[in-house]
Structure formats: C-alpha cells, structure tokens
C-alpha cells in the first residue's frame, strides 16, 4: 500500500500534514502503561517527575513538567523520553504524546539542542520579522546543533523584530545581527548582550522617575 500510492499525482497538492499518511506498525505491541520492571528510567529524571507530581492535587498535572524534563534530558520528546516519563507517571505513552504534540515547545522530531525561535507574528512582521527568520536560517545553515524556528508571538513586541535564543529574548534585531547571533551561540558566548530584553528599561518615562 505504501509505495504505490505515494507516486500518485493527486497526492501532490493540498496541504501536507506530517503523520496523516502514516500507518501503524503491526509488528509492534500495543502501547500500554510501561511496566517499571522492564522500563529503565534515569534516576534524575524520575526524581524530577516525581517532585512535579507531588505539587498537584492530581498527578496528571505534571504531564507538561514531565515532558519538559524528559525533553531537556533527551533533546526532544523521543519515544524513549516519552516512555520513561509515562512509566514514572503510570500513564500510557499515548497520553503524553497527545499532550506533547499539542504544544509548540515540545519537539516530536529530533532537533538541535540550541533553540532559536524567531517571532513572525504581526508586530514583528511589521518590522521585518519574516526577513529576520530567513536571515537567521541562512546564518545557521545546516548545523545539526541548531533548532531555528519561526514562532508565533513570544510576547516581546517592544523589541520587534525579536528572537528567543535558548529562552533569552533579544531584539530589536536587524538582518545584520543574524550572523553575530549564530556566531555567539556556536561559540557559547552570551548572545547579543546589548540586545537582551532582560537588560532593557521600561518604556514608560513615568515609571523611571526615581528608579
């Protein structure tokens, strides 16, 4: 079934959505709650997830914290990462997959560990956000360690166009900054220190009066 239909022309148009063409693998076993007896979980990950579970009246609330922890460890929400989190939480891996695929920050395909989210939403695009994304992508090239993505509004339109580099907001950016940004990242330097939001004063002159 697989080979013949992919060649059919009519599948060439319309939007493509990853996953929609996928069949299950009938040779696999059904994905039930992983048995701790046969699913090894790194101690630190287990401790992180168990601590998160203890914070909430219902342990399921720890799904997102558990996925954050598993992604931090494995670099992405790999099947192994999800199975380990599911094992600790006593949930099916499916439960966590449903959650992971819903949220933009969880990567369900392997990606580079260095995150660069470039905002392309309205305020940034009015000031060149989309061009900025292209510039950063070009500067990043095909470095497998980099994960450059266009992102929806990151909540920093005051420094539009902007990007979040491993969580650090930088802007306003100009296409010329792209090379520097990537270079800083590759060299392990602080990224564009002058443009970091964390160092920026409030725009409201009234708020600064005797600050």
């Amino acid at each position: 079934m697989a080979e013949q239909s992919s060649a059919v022309a009519r599948y060439g148009h319309g939007s493509r959505i990853p996953g929609w063409d996928d069949s299950v693998d009938l040779s696999k076993d059904p994905a039930v709650v992983p048995d701790p007896a046969t699913t090894p979980v790194p101690d630190e990950l287990r401790a992180q997830i168990e601590a998160a579970m203890a914070k909430y009246p219902n342990f399921r609330s720890a799904a997102i914290p558990a996925l954050h922890a598993a992604q931090d460890l494995h670099g992405w929400c790999s099947p192994t990462a999800i199975e380990q989190a599911a094992c600790v939480m006593r949930l099916t891996p499916g439960y966590l997959t449903a959650v992971a695929t819903f949220y933009d920050m969880f990567e369900t395909k392997p990606v580079g560990r260095q995150r660069v989210y470039v905002c392309t939403n309205i305020s940034c695009s009015l000031r060149g956000g989309k061009e900025m994304l292209e510039a950063v992508k070009a500067a990043a090239g095909d470095d497998p360690d980099l994960n450059v993505r266009g992102f929806e509004c990151l909540g920093a339109c005051d420094i539009a166009p902007m990007a979040s580099v491993n969580g650090e907001f930088v802007g306003p950016l100009e296409p010329a900054d792209a090379e520097q940004l990537i270079a800083d990242l590759k060299e392990g330097r602080e990224v564009l220190p002058d443009k970091q939001l964390s160092r920026r004063a409030c725009a409201d002159p009234g708020a600064r009066s005797d600050g």
Binding site: L126, C157, D158, A160
Partner: peptide
Amino acid sequence: ISISGNVQRPGNYE
C-alpha cells in the same frame, strides 16, 4: 498598555 508595530517608541506604558 503594550504598544507595538509601526511606532517610534514601542513598549509598556501605564
């Protein structure tokens, strides 16, 4: 208020 887009001094103002 957050002002952004095509203005000269984007930012938060109370």
